[in-house]
Structure formats: structure tokens, C-alpha cells
Amino acid sequence: MIHIFAALALAITFGCEQSDPNFNGREGDTLTFSGRKWDIKSSSVVVGPGPNYFSKHPNDVFIDDDGYLHLSVEFREGQWRSTEVISQDTMGYGTYVWTLQGDPVNIDPNLVIGLFTWDNNTFQTQANSEVDIEFAKWGDEEEEYTLQYGVQPIAFGPYNPERVLKPEGDNSNWIGVSTHAFTWTDTLITWESWKGGTYGNGEPDASWTFDLSNPARIKYEGGNQSDPIIIPAPGNTTNARMNLWLVNGPGGPAYGTRQEIIIRKFEYIPL
């Protein structure tokens, strides 16, 4: 019973599937959220991260009547399937802000909430231009602190511990509504998190900075390696992404139940 309760603390399951094709704010494989168009990732074979199968089913990723984005992990068509949305807008240096609703502290051990930047075309020079805010236990049921700030490469090849931080503050700040942001420049990345739904509302409840005093690191993936990188730069096709995925891929959630997170709002403030 403890396992079931912990899983449902994050998950919000619906008593029946939605049948109205217009309820989810979607047009085909895109949706509108926080005033922007987002593409919905889907795959019939396992792909990264995870790797996982990704669902575009309208009951797995949708916008509710309040304009909030729902991402889920669901057992569908014989497989556990994760969800991800990708901004059609390209973005670069600036501030990225997400407001969450749910319980990302008492999260299923196999679940990861990802709020991040990415560029398919900058592996070689910028390690895919990835800056992260994540919530996860990374498979460890006993892990207490789930909020994580990071700048890649972290564990693509040797583990680079200086490129990641788990704030060890009051975890209750993240249960309910919480706001998380990073400001990305060519010399400094600053992460900040607040209890509640307002960005910049007084002193942050957690924060971290990463600057050019850190060593350059190489990303190793698929037999390839990037150039040495300290702070990655955005590319011409860098965008924002949000996902809910499984660290063990098709193995599913540890507690075997549908998982869901609500993202109330996203904002990008360019420099």
C-alpha cells in the first residue's frame, strides 16, 4: 500500500478516457501551450531518453480546460509509453521558466520529469546545447532529494559531478505548485526554484550557479565524442522541451501505475 500511495502522489488518473477530439488543445501532432506551438514526440521503436517508446495519444498528452499541459506515462498498445513535447520556436540565451503542479518529490523511482533545452544539430560543438531541470530518483527508491539542476555533459562517458547539483533544502516546497527557472548566458548559468506559482517571488528556495571556472568536458555517445565544453552555446535550432520518461524504458514504472505531471506554464525571456 505504501508503494501505491507514493505513485499516486504524482499521478492523476482519470476515471474514463476523453472522447472529444477538441478537449486537448491539439491540431494533429501539435498542441498550443503557453502561447506557443509544440510538436508531440512519438515513436514506434525505443528512442532516447531511456530509451523509451513515446506516445502521441490524445489521452496521454493534452491541454486541459485551464490551459495546463498534462504529460503521462501510460501502458498502451502493449508497451509502457512516455511523453514529450518540443517547442516549434527556436530559443537561445535567456531565462526559461516552468511552473509545475503535482508531487515530484514522492515520485515513482523509475520516473523522470525533464525540463530542458536541446539541439539535434550541435552535438559536435555544443553537446546538443542541453541545460536541465529534472525531478527523479534515478531508480533509487530511498533517494530523498529529487530536484536536480544540470548542464551536459554529465554522464555521457565519465561522470562529471561538478556539472550537476541536487539542492538539499525543504522538499515540501516542491509539493503542490512550484516554479523552476534557469538563466543561460555564455559565461554563467543560474538555476532558481520557488514554492508557488510566481517566478522571482522573493529569495529562491533553491539555487545554483555554474561558470567558466569549471573544466571543459567531452560528451561521448554512440561511438562519437564532442569537442570539450564548459558552458554549451545554443545553436540555430535549439528549442525547449518537456518530458516524462522512464529510466528503465519499457520496463515501466516501479509501482506499475499510470503516471502524470501537470505543467501550468512555460515562459522564455530572451536576453
Rank of each mutant, 00 (worst) to 15 (best):
W118N: 04
V151W: 12
Q152W: 01
W138G: 01
T125H: 12
V151I: 13
E134R: 04
T122E: 04
E143L: 11
Q124S: 08
G139N: 05
P153C: 15
P153L: 15
L115D: 03
Y149V: 08
G114T: 13
F156T: 11
L111W: 01
F116H: 12
D108I: 02
G150M: 06
D140T: 14
I107L: 14
F123H: 15
E141V: 13
D119Q: 06
N121F: 10
G157A: 09
T146D: 06
E130R: 02
I154Y: 01
L115V: 08
V112C: 08
I154E: 00
E134Q: 13
V131D: 00
T146K: 06
I113L: 14
W118Y: 13
A136Y: 12
E130P: 00
E130L: 04
E141Q: 11
E143C: 10
I107E: 07
A136F: 13
A155M: 05
L147S: 06
E130W: 00
G139R: 02
V105P: 03
V131L: 02
P158T: 10
V105D: 03
V105M: 10
E130C: 09
N128Y: 11
D108P: 00
F156W: 13
T122F: 00
E134I: 11
Y145N: 09
D103L: 06
D103F: 08
E134H: 09
V131P: 01
E134W: 08
W138A: 00
Q124M: 06
Q152K: 05
Q152F: 01
A155V: 07
G139I: 01
E130D: 05
D108R: 00
D140S: 12
L115P: 02
V112Y: 05
P109I: 04
T125R: 12
F116V: 12
E142I: 09
Q126S: 15
E143G: 08
Y149N: 10
S129W: 00
D132K: 04
A136G: 13
Q148Y: 13
A127I: 05
A136H: 14
Q152C: 00
F116K: 02
F123Q: 15
L111P: 01
T122P: 01
N110E: 03
W118A: 01
F123Y: 15
G139C: 08
F135E: 07
L111H: 02
D132Q: 10
P109G: 07
I133P: 00
G157S: 08
